[in-house]
Design a protein around this nucleic acid. Structure first.
Length: 223
DNA sequence: GACCAGGCACATC
DNA sequence: GATGTGCATGGT
């Protein structure tokens, strides 16, 4: 079976098993972008609490977040973890929006994909996964999102080495996965669903007296 | 109590 | 360039 067929078969099976995921769980472009920052290295349930806090305080809209003092914003998003860092990232996002697009997401949405991606990657605190999540889910661009689950699951299916970096994995998926915004949307969501349920991080090293993990993501190194 | 979660920036070698 | 570390809460 070719790589293309294997990846398409994985997509087909996941869709059959889990059904459409209806991502992204956010109602506006802004809410999706905010969620993309808040979910960095954080369980979505924690992000839901943070967004719930903002909603209850009627502080979720872009203009409301803009008007919040840092300390208040930090208090609202506290459940999502790394709250001081995330306040800085949200401020950096707003600075970009104001500086490049007059504070208008509608204007930002008219920027071609490659340039928009470059702009997002230029924002402090926004790396490739967060930028691509924003592009796909907030701006409806055909960009394949690679996350920790993608990089864990597909190598275990034997598709490529686990050591591949972001851009390599993305290029592979673009080359072999079913194309287009709806498929990219669903594929990423389905990989997350599968990963949460069945694909825990790398197994512990057999016989390691520390019972810890080696290679990326580890807390300590095996002796 | 350890591990994990829909990363990223920065320091150090 | 590769590797390690800080950031932090909440669920299991």
């Amino acid at each position: 079976m070719t790589d293309e067929n294997r990846l398409q078969e994985i997509f087909r099976r996941l869709l059959a098993a889990f059904g459409p995921q209806h991502w992204w769980p956010g109602e506006t472009r802004w809410e999706i972008m905010l969620g993309a920052i808040l979910t960095q290295n954080t369980a979505w349930t924690n992000v839901e609490q943070a967004i719930g806090n903002l909603k209850r305080a009627q502080a979720l809209p872009l203009a409301a977040v803009r008007a919040l003092p840092d300390a208040v914003l930090a208090r609202h998003i506290r459940p999502s973890g790394y709250f001081n860092q995330k306040v800085k990232k949200i401020r950096a996002l707003l600075r970009w929006l104001d500086g490049e697009h007059g504070g208008s997401l509608a204007r930002a949405a008219r920027v071609p994909t490659e340039r928009l991606r470059a702009e997002l990657l230029g924002i402090w605190g926004i790396g490739p996964e967060t930028a691509d999540s924003m592009l796909l889910y907030a701006f409806n661009r055909p960009v394949f999102v690679v996350d920790a689950y993608t990089r864990r699951i597909l190598p275990r299916c034997g598709l490529f080495p686990a050591a591949w970096e972001y851009a390599q994995v993305q290029a592979y998926c673009v080359a072999h996965a079913p194309a287009g915004v709806p498929c990219y949307n669903e594929f990423h969501a389905l990989l997350v669903m599968l990963g949460k349920q069945f694909c825990k991080p790398r197994p512990r090293c057999a016989g390691c007296p520390l019972q810890t993990r080696c290679a990326t993501g580890q807390k300590r190194k095996c002796p």
